[in-house]
Design a protein around this nucleic acid. Structure first.
Lengths: 145, 145
DNA sequence: GTGGTTGCAAAATATTTGCACACTC
DNA sequence: GAGTGTGCAAATATTTTGCAACCAC
């Protein structure tokens, strides 16, 4: 499945991100590109391992973080490290700093008038919208130009 | 700070949820009610411990889950158990089943025309919206009436 | 008293780190 | 050859579980 075109594309991406295009990195990147869902590191590890039996889980973790840090992929959720409880019972949404992961509340009125979506997959019943505004908080913005 | 009114309110909530109103449970519930942010179980534990030095972290976990299961509080994020990587690079949002935590992609067009919010806290730069539609998937809907 | 609840300690799960060796340029 | 990246094993972080003692009804 590995085409030269794909390899060169990955090569260019790495150059742009300032990282070395290694074999493991290529396979992990390809694997992610071919999956069209929301895999966990363990999921990715299993698939990569079938093509590259000696790869380690640590390498998968390191490269996933690298890919996320350099913008090649995104995380589905910013809060996977630990459970976070919502103690604000008022209708509201969240501002999330992509750097320090701070969560600030945003009054629902500032994001109002947003209807529940149409065209849902069959059988899914929408109950509630959870809206996160991703960005950079004032502190983190000063940290990096 | 513990008023009789508060205690009775908690008592009623417990009755409604079908759980025993214990002392620990009351203090944990009060602590959550008094915090206005997005604490982790460890955060809650530290605060509860200052009022109830013998409480255990396990009890805090058990009760947080109980509160979430019975609807007294919500989790900020459904995906805290493990990192999940977004492999779909098309603009889209997510349908999340609150029961089985399945994540389905939702085409951005089905949630279009939503502007970045105004009235942000000073210094926060909004870059992107992440919208989760919470609900019940077809499978889980059949599981419970 | 009975059954649910707690605290403790141990286990399970998820992720990170230190370091010697290997690979890329 | 210099510096980055990998694999392994150990460490850390987070959450869950088994079980005896305890509390609410």
């Amino acid at each position: 499945m590995t085409s030269t075109v794909q390899f060169e594309h990955f090569d260019a991406l790495c150059k742009e991100a300032g990282i070395t295009p290694t074999h493991q990195r290529l396979v992990i990147w390809q694997t992610l590109t071919e999956m069209h869902d929301h895999p966990s590191p363990e999921d990715v590890y299993r698939r990569v391992k079938s093509e590259l039996p000696t790869v380690s889980l640590a390498t998968v973790y390191k490269n996933i973080h690298l890919f996320v840090d350099t913008g090649l992929f995104r995380e589905v959720s910013m809060f996977h490290g630990t459970l976070r409880i919502e103690t604000n019972s008022e209708p509201h949404h969240h501002l999330v700093c992509r750097k320090c992961k701070a969560i600030l509340d945003l009054d629902a009125d500032d994001l109002s008038g947003f209807p529940l979506p149409q065209h849902l997959p069959e059988g899914f019943v929408a109950e509630q919208l959870s809206i996160d505004v991703l960005g950079l908080c004032a502190t983190c913005r000063q940290g990096k130009p």
